[in-house]
Nucleic acid binder design. Structure first.
Lengths: 118, 118
DNA sequence: TCCATATATTGATGAATGTCTATGTCCGAG
DNA sequence: CTCGGACATAGACATTCATCAATATATGGA
């Protein structure tokens, strides 16, 4: 149980136009998609993801992330945990530092489900 | 102040690949995107949006929506209000019935910001 | 005018969430 | 081995949220 995790059905990603708009999401699909959106639905976490994603190598050190906000270190740590547990961020420890990286496929899948091509 | 509402900057939508991944979201952008995601980040609301979107004409009557869930009518009404106030659903009253329709551009913009093309 | 039906609003309640301070854990330097 | 720095966890607190039952509002028909 690793991988994409949100592979709701093995179909949607391939579809051409707005998957969510062709046929209604099943209750099951909705229950699996919602936590991902919930994890993203916070200004701080959105910025965290975007900072990490925009970093070279798609990775950023927690120490850098802390500096980008006017929030306590535990608060940032908490948000990173939420994003990590949702499956949106990867976590790697290198020496004393911890690096978070974006799972682009997950993000892409979420986007595909939400908007498709419209 | 109507229209897309989430037009964070007049650029992102056009960009080719994962807007959110090229440069970090500003605090302002994040504050405007988060409420949209928050509105979507609920299983019931996700299904509501998808049912409406999949309906012919992109519209659905509240009476039909109520039947699709094992929830009280006020609860569905509440979720529809949340989606409407977030700017994701349009509301039209015809006779005794109320129809909700999806704002596809909004949904598409959100998707573009989140996932881009990756 | 009065009633039944469709939808919204109100108020209450328990659960979840974002933030903080304080403390714990792990690692490298000396 | 001990110390300092990087990060995580625990516990507390105020706020927000999803849900319901009860009630209000509005509209078309008799």
């Amino acid at each position: 149980m690793s991988k994409s995790q949100l592979t709701l059905t093995p179909v949607e990603t391939a579809a051409c136009c707005s998957p969510l708009m062709r046929e209604p999401l099943s209750a099951d699909q909705a229950e699996r998609l919602a936590p991902l959106l919930k994890a993203l639905a916070d200004p701080v976490r959105l910025r965290l993801v975007s900072i990490v994603a925009a970093s070279e190598g798609g990775e950023a050190c927690v120490c850098d992330l802390n500096d980008a906000f006017d929030l306590s270190q535990p608060t940032i740590s908490h948000h990173l945990k939420v994003l990590h547990e949702a499956g949106l961020l990867d976590r790697t420890k290198r020496g004393v530092w911890v690096y978070y990286g974006v799972r682009r496929e997950v993000l892409a899948d979420v986007a595909a489900l939400i908007g498709g091509a419209a």
